[in-house]
């Protein structure tokens, strides 16, 4: 079941093409990573979904319906550039922004109290935003983004400005929101969080989609058939004796009889053959395939397009 369907969306600004016939589909109740270097067109796409701007051509469907003004109430958006009214009190402001999303004042107040208690920030209710630290403001902004219990959440770099402890709290909250039924679009440069959180991703560059799919499939697709083996009690040397189809990439000895080896296999050979070959040489402590990280795939894909990137 696709929650968001983007069909051939094109958006041109005065002197450049921000989006060129981009099509995406985001399955319901998943976390979808929107990746790409700066200026790739991610923000343009996000703004189109948020109905801040309209596409020149193409369509966006939410839950099977053509994007419409009423959907605004079902979308929660955390922009990359955070902002709140500095002179306004925290509680008052959160209530105001919730009401603008169409939540009744009393309901908003009840929900806000729950969130404030969960984040242990109840004491900030009557303080002005400008009195809070940047991290504190980020928390408020997060609460404001989810307060109307949107079906679609769009987070643009949600972890920037948070300390590691708060990043973990936020990750848990994001996973919990998905658990509760929300579909989440997640735009970031932080690839480790993509691997950790995202179910699917799309890679956009220069207004074009260059890659889309589930994180697992993509990593499989870009696998290099490289295996990492850790051996102990190594009895003898074996590199010359590697069978056909296996190539030693590196070998590092650690301690007197421990060894770490990277071996690449040709596509047609079976990984188990390598294991059985290695068994006599020592005790195998670990044996795993090295899948490329999203970070590597990202850089490789962008660079292969000969684009200068600045992450």
């Amino acid at each position: 079941m696709q929650f968001i369907q983007i069909q051939e969306v094109t958006k041109a600004y005065a002197n450049h093409l921000a989006l060129n016939k981009v099509s995406l589909s985001v399955p319901k109740q998943t976390i979808y990573g929107l990746l790409g270097p700066n200026g790739a067109g991610k923000t343009s796409l996000i703004r189109i979904i948020n109905q801040i701007t309209a596409p020149d051509s193409g369509q966006v469907f939410i839950d099977g319906e053509l994007l419409h003004a009423k959907h605004i109430a079902h979308i929660g958006y955390l922009p990359e550039e955070r902002g709140l009214y500095k002179k306004m009190k925290v509680g008052e402001q959160a209530l105001y922004l919730a009401q603008l999303k169409g939540v009744d004042k009393k309901v908003a107040e009840k929900r806000l109290k729950l969130w404030f208690e969960r984040f242990e920030i109840m004491g900030w209710w009557n303080r002005k935003v400008e009195e809070l630290s940047k991290g504190m403001q980020q928390k408020i902004q997060f609460v404001v983004t989810v307060i109307h219990e949107p079906k679609l959440l769009i987070f643009d770099e949600p972890f920037s400005g948070f300390d590691p402890i708060n990043v973990n709290i936020l990750k848990e909250e994001i996973l919990r929101l998905r658990q509760e039924g929300a579909t989440i679009i997640f735009s970031t440069h932080n690839m480790s969080s993509v691997e950790e959180l995202c179910d699917n991703i799309a890679l956009i560059n220069n207004g074009n989609k260059i890659l889309e799919g589930s994180v697992r499939d993509i990593r499989q697709q870009y696998r290099t058939n490289t295996f990492e083996v850790h051996l102990s009690n190594v009895s003898s040397f074996f590199d010359e004796a590697l069978p056909n189809g296996f190539h030693l990439i590196s070998k590092t000895a650690s301690g007197s009889d421990e060894m770490n080896v990277l071996i690449q296999c040709d596509p047609h050979v079976k990984a188990n053959d390598l294991l059985s070959f290695l068994l006599p040489f020592g005790q195998i402590v670990s044996y795993k395939e090295l899948l490329p990280s999203m970070h590597d795939i990202f850089i490789q894909q962008i660079e292969s397009q000969n684009i200068k990137i600045s992450i």
């Binding site: 948020n50 109905q51 801040i52 003004a69 605004i72 979308i75 958006y77 922009p79 550039e81 955070r82 902002g83 709140l84 009214y85 500095k86 922004l97 603008l100 999303k101 902004q141 404001v144």
Partner: peptide
């Protein structure tokens, strides 16, 4: 200008026209 510099504007226009 205040809404622009405090960057609240993007939150606002995602809620209202």
């Amino acid at each position: 200008i205040e809404e622009k510099t405090s960057r609240i504007i993007e939150v606002m226009v995602s809620s209202v026209r």
